[in-house]
Write a protein that binds this DNA or RNA. Structure first.
Lengths: 242, 242
DNA sequence: TCAAAAAGTGACGACTTGTCAATAATGGAG
DNA sequence: CTCCATTATTGACAAGTCGTCACTTTTTGA
């Protein structure tokens, strides 16, 4: 019985290892030749397995892409969690800034992860993928939202922030989310940003974010505290980025 | 000589008409079956021309996509211009709000145009397309920026706004751009926005925008003036949207 | 040892995009 | 009106996709 169990797990382990290898290959392929260049034939050839075997792991190309996107979301969730529980935060707005720093770090450290997210959002991959994986994605997205919402709620509870009539916590989070997602998308896809006068888009993003929260009157305001310093501190202390 | 000229122009006119028809077909195709479903074969079949002829107009699929994207940019530029010269603006911030309304109207009225823009930004179409068309795109983008920047500069000149140290006009514009682009991307690609607590994303976007500009201390602040009313007014008066 | 079950294979059909020799239409010149 | 050069149009073709499934090989447990 023990040997049987062991053999099952060995098989299972091999399967998982192979799956990981497929994803690894797909990741680098995606980075080097883009979504359209990603080919099942080539994956099979480089894996030295037949196509049929690859299709036993992922029933189509889109499933692979979505699996990569899910990895990305998981990674970011992890980073957001680390930022939200940062011990160096003195105020609720510090904590919010920490999450901003996490978002920044995520894109810088895993640009290909971010680009997968973009692909999933623009190409109509959805229809072809399994319900299961789609759901996983929504769960991740929801949990990410929940972390940020949690910080906002903390601010409300502590009296650092009051929402205007008719606005929900999620509306604020949506604003931040949009700003960040849009900024990174433009940054990674516009070649000549400098030419049209945007020398340091990351700094511009930080500023916009700060001013948006200032607009919400989330205290301390950016005029009362240097959140740029907080950003850099988080990137050093939490993510070990000197 | 007259007849010769006429014949040349007749030929040329026919060519252009056909080109327009190709783009029209591609547009609807893109809307109905997405980027991946857009097929040169099908375009040729539906045009009742051979593939070779289609390829004489656009030397690859990506050129068609980019041509559509350029149409979109032109359209938006037009709408931005209309908004920026709106006669009903009482303050510089009114004028800025008018542009926000134009952006909103653009996405609502031409959703497929917006989706083309997203496709161009995420898929790596760039490499395959002609320098000419790429340049056109950048010019449009630059002119769009220039319109918005113009309004910001007007505000600076009139003393309605002062920029913080180290920030340029373009940084502010970049913030607005990111916020809008990000928000519309998320809106059009996230199915279950309501489920995660974002009931009215457009309202949330307006709010975020207003608060961001409040953060910049662009007077009158949103607490001193109802810009929601301005948005709706512009959509009625400039774009005839009741 | 051996048969049944599981795993792996790759030729295949149906689709792409983009090319290019061959064919058809056109437009002056005589 | 004829005729030929130029230009426009064609569609078979090469080379590449994706996903399938009858087949072969390996594994497994009795």
């Amino acid at each position: 019985m023990a040997t049987l169990d062991q053999k099952i797990t060995r098989k299972e382990r091999e399967r998982q290892e192979r799956e990981e290898k497929i994803l690894e290959l797909a990741r680098t392929m995606l980075r080097e030749v883009g979504y359209l260049g990603l080919s099942m034939d080539r994956i099979a050839a480089e894996m030295e397995y037949s196509k049929g075997t690859i299709y036993q792991h992922f029933c189509n190309k889109e499933e692979i892409i979505l699996a990569l996107a899910n990895e990305a979301l998981e990674k970011r969730l992890e980073m957001f969690e680390a930022a939200a529980t940062w011990s160096g935060a003195e105020t609720s707005r510090d904590r919010m800034a920490a999450i901003g720093a996490a978002a920044e770090e995520f894109v810088e450290r895993y640009p290909q992860h971010f680009s997968v997210e973009q692909i999933v959002r623009s190409s109509s991959i959805w229809e072809k993928t399994s319900e299961e994986r789609r759901q996983f994605m929504q769960v991740c997205e929801g949990r990410c939202m929940a972390i940020v919402s949690g910080v906002v709620r903390e601010a409300l509870a502590q009296g650092d922030l009051e929402l205007p009539a008719g606005r929900s916590v999620e509306d604020l989070v949506f604003g931040l989310w949009s700003l960040n997602f849009g900024a990174y998308t433009i940054i990674t896809s516009s070649e000549a940003l400098e030419e049209i006068g945007i020398a340091d888009p990351i700094a511009a993003l930080r500023q916009s974010q700060n001013f948006m929260l200032d607009g919400y009157r989330w205290r301390p305001l950016s005029s009362e505290h240097d959140f740029n310093e907080t950003f850099d501190q988080v990137k050093r202390e939490v993510f070990g980025n000197g």
